[in-house]
Design a protein around this nucleic acid. Sequence first.
DNA 1: AATCTCTTCAACCGCTACCAT
DNA 2: GATGGTAGCGGTTGAAGAGAT
Length: 315
Amino acid sequence: MGRGRAPCCDKSKVKKGPWSPAEDSRLINFVQKNGHSNWRALPKQAGLLRCGKSCRLRWINYLSPDVKRGNFTSEEEQTIINLHNSIGNKWSKIASYLPGRTDNEIKNVWNTHLKKRLTRKSVDNMEHSSSQSHTSSSSTQLVQMDKSLDDQMIHQSNMEGHSQKLDSVEQTTTIDSPTSSYASSYPNSSKDSAALLPNEATRHPKSYADDGKAEVALESDVDFWDFLDSLDPLQFSTKSEVSGEKSDGDEIECRRWLEYLENELGLSGVDNKITKEQEIVATVPQLDGVNLEQEIGFALDSFPIWPPSPLNLGI
DNA sequence: AATCTCTTCAACCGCTACCAT
DNA sequence: GATGGTAGCGGTTGAAGAGAT
């Protein structure tokens, strides 16, 4: 037709920016019930004012029960380094070797930690080898080393025999529980919470921040708790489930995920409590053809304290 | 205490690959 | 084979927190 490709969605009608707990709950609820065979159609069906791509990204990177939160172990870090050395910036491919880790997460870890660490090591080695007689500007050296490192990786990624390298790398990959190995390298992650729960729970209030358009952040947390209450963690299909095996580990992972969501959605703390009145005053977006209250079953009167926490829910 | 700079990472954007017709 | 639609990938951005001054 020659008119170019149609946009994936009407950008004037979709919400952008951080996801609210209500949006998360709606997405979780919908995917849990209906799956995600069609991301493009999903936002409308789920009653979300989001682009399908945005929904997909949110699910894959954040809400999916398959996502392993917490700090990267040293083994995982080493795997990333090895794989990146072999195949370069193929984040999705690298992620496939790290169960529970997303390409986005790996990409961020690489760009913010591993790359710098390797660069620093290389500089140290160079300074050591070039010995005491030559002391040039270290900042210049850093830049040069950063570039040379990238060039080296690009060169290596172009080399043949990647599959052989991958095989050897895979042997070093371990499916282990999160450890606090990042507690030192991630200055703002507490050792207590980092061991199991995602650091975002306490570190990213912006995730649910108001976007400046007076959209309420906690529009339907009750439905989310209803949803959680009725949830059978084992309904979620994990990778092992697909392959026909189910272990206690899956259940534990699901429980961890639920605990994480509780924290993530700010429902387990006392500092961010909002009165029921305040919540009711806030507006709930009305969507064409979608009766949200009916769909998600509001039960405001059930909770004297708003939002409900695991404590006052008796969890 | 206030301001500036740096770091982190969730989310967005644009592109490509793949599939159906 | 051409075309159009969708999913997925990788680069980039920008808000927010942390640390430095």
